[in-house]
Design a protein around this nucleic acid. Sequence first.
DNA 1: CAGCCGAATAAGCGAAGGCTTAACGCGCGG
DNA 2: CCGCGCGTTAAGCCTTCGCTTATTCGGCTG
Lengths: 307, 307
Amino acid sequence: MTLTQLGAFVLVARLGSVKEAARALNVSEPAVSQALTALRQHMGDPLLVRGPGGMTLTEGGARLLPIASQMVVLGAEAEGAVRAARGAPEALRVVAAPAVAEFVATPLLDAFTARSARDVEGSSGVVAGREMPVLLHNRLADMAIGPHLADDQGLVSEPVFRASIVAVGTAAGPRPLWLVDPSGTDPSSETSRLLRRLKVPEDRVRVYPNQTAAWAAAADGDGLAVALAHLVAPRVQRGELRVIATPATPAEIRWHATTLAPDRRPPLAGAFRRFLATAEALHIMRSPGSGVPPSRFRPPVYVTIWS
Amino acid sequence: MTLTQLGAFVLVARLGSVKEAARALNVSEPAVSQALTALRQHMGDPLLVRGPGGMTLTEGGARLLPIASQMVVLGAEAEGAVRAARGAPEALRVVAAPAVAEFVATPLLDAFTARSARDVEGSSGVVAGREMPVLLHNRLADMAIGPHLADDQGLVSEPVFRASIVAVGTAAGPRPLWLVDPSGTDPSSETSRLLRRLKVPEDRVRVYPNQTAAWAAAADGDGLAVALAHLVAPRVQRGELRVIATPATPAEIRWHATTLAPDRRPPLAGAFRRFLATAEALHIMRSPGSGVPPSRFRPPVYVTIWS
DNA sequence: CAGCCGAATAAGCGAAGGCTTAACGCGCGG
DNA sequence: CCGCGCGTTAAGCCTTCGCTTATTCGGCTG
């Protein structure tokens, strides 16, 4: 399996014909055809078969195409990325648990890049706790902010923030519906730990795309939402929501910053780690202003790998 | 540039040593070293240099690593994907504008897969309008739901839903701050069209990760949020928010479903397109129940390409 | 049935890729 | 200063890639 083969396959699938693909690639038609057969053989699937209106994908080909297409794109990107590294700003890549990402990751990165004298470019993404060690080890991220990561060889995980999680809703009741953010599906998260401690059955849990949405549903009387106390406080004061005591809340939780061991982590990750200890960072975590000007808002490039 | 070369590079970067990488790959040490030099030459960058505590990445290497790593992973995935296609459920991949993704994409796909007799597996992702045609053409998605896509050769875009966008907040005032979801940064979106029509300068715009969050901020009196009227209605009725008239709102908008031309689109995409015309789908779009049980909630695999 | 078009196959060739063993360079600690 | 340990270079070998031209196969159309 070669990038050229994948490229040929992608182009034939897109253009619907070997001939056109050959023309687009500026090679002879058999070259493309041969690349295809090599790939077919490797995969053990026809991938593309003759059909009305050109070559059409088999089910296997349809599965392969998005993956192959991405690989081709990444291949092109790779060359550019290395070349662009000269004189480009240093990159700092942070992955975070949903609540962190939703409320504080962007303000923190903004403050850090603004304060850092160096030319720095930060970006962040959301992942489950289980993924974090892998991403750090593979250096797909420089720092993870979220739950404590077990003493995985080569990782250092230090607490950077303490908060309290509470249940909020409009009224207490028996067998409430629990409204949570995606970390409810992440077994290593505090949210899911809480649900387990309360023995909430799965059919009494509803997952929302983010904590704000879950609060909104709770304010509608749909159930109890899990919330970080200091973040939901304004709504409680306004009377939209009430803090509902449960056997397991309020509970104290900690956010941890995890990086590779100091001798192996990028310098920038160390600098950011030190920044997290400053009063400025602490202030941001305690009361993040939410919403950012559009020029600052760069949504990460989410590429969905359809599996 | 070969996948083997990239694999060797990734492994050396991860393990910090050529020797260990060679052992992990079960090849001789020069094999790895040579793969590295080939890649270095191709890229025109040392990528990895000797450093204290093993081989350390150059800035260029650091840029390459995440890309290379992903390519390697995808390479492995490719083989599995084709093999798994036998007897696997058919895949339907939908990309959607932020508002669609936030409120209706998941319920729609759930309803469709539940109703379809076939074994179907749906998944969805969020993208900007500009990306949609290329994703469809490249067959990285089977359908796009969002703005009308210009008469791009080979694409058919049909309206599937009509709604009204309004501005909501707690009070009208001069020079309000506009609170929008990420589509505010997408020039082809209705939201950004609206902002342009109102001549809102960029520094009066704040982008939130989703519409719900923007509404919440608006309820806090932070400014005016852009909202789909029928979705924000409950909050207006409860008095949390008021609809604020502006010279450009309320405005009627349309969601369009776009696929490849019928003769080139996957059968499943056609079936889903027809489903969107049913009363059931219409009902879901009009009043989507939000929040899904966790067993149903499969967050798409978001892979961030750090550029 | 002839003719045509597009895909597949055959045969051949140069250039990489990818692997080995052997030897070299080089920083570091005994 | 000698010997490790580790990365790199050298040389040789076989396989595969990737391309060509020439030919064959298969389906569609007049």
